[in-house]
């Protein structure tokens, strides 16, 4: 089946979503956070069994986070990205662990770097950062340069004579 047909069929089933054919083999699905699990379950059952990635985008001006679920179907050789937007204030979204177990790592990472809560995920402990005390570093309002200056670029080497 072509990606465009898959998108049309999904749209028929879920009239409240928006779809877009991005490239011949890549489609995009825009859906709100209340319904995104339904769409994911449907896509998974129609051969999109591979969750390649989850990634987040910080749309700071629109005060929203966008979560992208990158799915791949081996049967149709096509990829679909499911895009969900959630508010920046108290960001929370249901976990997809029940559908894809390996989503654990992605969710842990996103929680660490964006501070998004995944409701239902039992383990959101830090993975990469060491002793992190600031707001999550991938948020757009985190000033990495200023942080680097204050943390690492302090003082001269005068002590080491």
């Amino acid at each position: 089946m072509k990606t465009s047909d898959i998108l049309n069929k999904t749209k028929e089933l879920f009239p409240y979503i928006a779809t877009e054919l991005f490239e011949e083999q890549q489609g995009r699905v825009y859906v709100c956070s209340d319904h995104f699990l339904n769409v994911l379950v449907y896509l998974r059952n129609s051969s999109f069994v591979h969750l390649a990635n989850i990634f987040a985008i910080d749309w700071i001006e629109e005060k929203e986070f966008e979560l992208n679920y990158n799915l791949w179907s081996y049967d149709h050789n096509s990829s679909i990205i499911v895009k969900v937007r959630i508010p920046r204030e108290k960001p929370e979204i249901p976990t997809v662990l029940d559908l894809w177990e390996h989503g654990q790592v992605y969710e842990q990472e996103i929680h660490e770097f964006f501070g998004i809560e995944f409701a239902g995920n039992p383990d959101l402990s830090p993975l990469f950062l060491h002793n992190w005390k600031e707001i999550p570093p991938m948020r757009k309002d985190f000033d990495t340069e200023e942080y680097s200056k204050r943390a690492f670029d302090v003082g001269e080497r005068e002590g080491a004579k």
């Binding site: 060491h130 680097s148 943390a151 690492f152 670029d153």
Partner: peptide
């Protein structure tokens, strides 16, 4: 020496000389 192109990074140290000689 001073962080190089990673100067602005939040998780990379800048001056190695401050931590080991």
């Amino acid at each position: 020496i001073n962080g190089g192109i990673y100067y602005k990074s939040y998780n990379v140290i800048n001056k190695l000389d401050r931590y080991i000689p």
